[in-house]
Design a protein around this nucleic acid. Sequence first.
DNA 1: TCCTCGTACTAGAGCGCTCTAGTCGGAGAG
DNA 2: CTCTCCGACTAGAGCGCTCTAGTACGAGGA
Lengths: 333, 333
Amino acid sequence: MTASRPTMEDVAARAGVSRALVSIVFRGAAGASPATRERVLTAAAELGYQPDRRASRLGRTRTRMLGVVFGVGHAFHGDLVDSLYVAAADSDYEVVLSGVTPRRREDEAVRALQAERCEAIVLLGSTLPARALAELASRLPTVSVLRDVRAAGVDVVRTDDAEGLRQAVAHLHALGHRRIAHADGGQAPGAAERRRGYRTAVRRLGLAELPLLPAGLTEEDGARAAGAFLAGPAKDRPTAVTAFNDRCALGFVDAVRRGGVGVPERLSVVGFDDIRAAAYAHIALTTIRQDADALGRLAIERAAARLDEGAPPGRPAVVAPTLVVRATTGAPR
Amino acid sequence: MTASRPTMEDVAARAGVSRALVSIVFRGAAGASPATRERVLTAAAELGYQPDRRASRLGRTRTRMLGVVFGVGHAFHGDLVDSLYVAAADSDYEVVLSGVTPRRREDEAVRALQAERCEAIVLLGSTLPARALAELASRLPTVSVLRDVRAAGVDVVRTDDAEGLRQAVAHLHALGHRRIAHADGGQAPGAAERRRGYRTAVRRLGLAELPLLPAGLTEEDGARAAGAFLAGPAKDRPTAVTAFNDRCALGFVDAVRRGGVGVPERLSVVGFDDIRAAAYAHIALTTIRQDADALGRLAIERAAARLDEGAPPGRPAVVAPTLVVRATTGAPR
DNA sequence: TCCTCGTACTAGAGCGCTCTAGTCGGAGAG
DNA sequence: CTCTCCGACTAGAGCGCTCTAGTACGAGGA
């Protein structure tokens, strides 16, 4: 099995050239004749040689590795990871994943990435205290995606959450809704902005600001909020709800329907994120779409700018969300 | 920013010892007096020194890295990743994640891991052809989790899928169901075994084997199967359905309910996996639980046995599933 | 004919660690 | 008082690459 893998030395010997030449060929650098290049590649293939990235990174000054911390269970993080992989490849960076799970905390995930000598860290929906982020940013370019933090040196890439809620409320208002409530995300990244967006939008339209339905970021939280919703007397209920995110909206819709309240007949619901599942025909959630591709691309661009051009941390990059109307909203009866 | 991080050399100089001694301290190896150890640690802290893992792995013969390929959007993979992180830490291995996304194929993910010099590869629900797996296994210890493959050198860790379906069918039968159908997973890893398990169980109980409802592994697929289910005349419909997995079951239940068929009043549904979401109060899916912790632990054990003890690939490790009765099953009316 | 220049290639010094084979000094045995 | 042994520590050779500073050589110009 491990008769110790072939190294560059072996390839060089077989091709009858120096180690350096093999390196040139594998890096795609200039300075090797086509014929030799061919010969080296052939020798490598025969030996089943594959360059050792650890060693190559050690030898190089730059590692070109970008550490990405993500929540393993979070659907939208998955969409972002997809986009980060693509964007990084385009900029000739390599992404290294480090997952946060119920038994692996965010700071552990970050530490692992630092030990690997990633050149920059991208945090998806970080819940680290601002102090910890600033401390991290003092060591490495740090990009916080989805979470707006004011911490020294931390770059922020996020969706315009408030604008998203403005669109959601405007959509519901246009449909004729006047009693619109918000299922709140509490401490979750982005929740404060969305809460604020809801309040501003409602006030501007001259509508009543209804009490928040305490929810959170999972389906379970949404279902819990539905409980609170159903508990009130039917005639006082809002006719529409904007949810903190899609997962929350999904749980909310599900629970409310089972409580006998039809969606969208009796209640309209708007989510946030536009996770893949929201688009599924059987769910067809009206939602505020976060542009995962744009967010991913911007995050990589920020990191690359800091690294390649020595750019200072910039002001938050804010991506516009878009309303996606599907089947969970309609005119109130 | 990068005034080039401190190295062992810097720490050694500051603590007034040799580089080797610093190495000893950081590896926790024997051969340093408590006083010196303390001094080195202090110097390191003052400099903000953190050892470079790449370099340490290069110096070492063993990298003790385990590559894990997982589907970024798959809920159950997330549960497995959590358990793998824990199990690996216990065996003093380090897991390196490589995600499969809509735009990043499984073979790319595997290649990245090989280039990192992982010592073994763990594939979650691989869809690689058996040939490719055998080829991979000829280079590195390879463990296929959730997918039963007969490929030379590949270790398999999986749930007893057929037994799971036996339990599901037996549960439904005990409740009084006689017309039980299966929403099939098609080509997905494990689908063939579950299909077979369904057929065997139904036959043994003397029940009719109903036509498969073609589904798949996503909520969408489940909803599609529900369409087929609802299309038939009501009186010929099965009274219970076993679904390929939880996500599929969730989509199925949702669509069927909206088609006016109550669950569990008119139709009982059993899932498979017991993903976190299945347990949520508002979903409360009766399901066959795969033991993610056991699967993760066994996968690591297998890899470790091959690596540490030179053990040959063994026969498949099969984990028993368990029935978790929640609220989507009941007696037929 | 000599010199320059560019292309193809090589030597060898790192990169930041690990780890083997030492050295050194003092405590305990004889 | 010498000899051994052990614990504490160091020197230095790797690990598999990268990359700078070369060398060798043939073509082209004066």
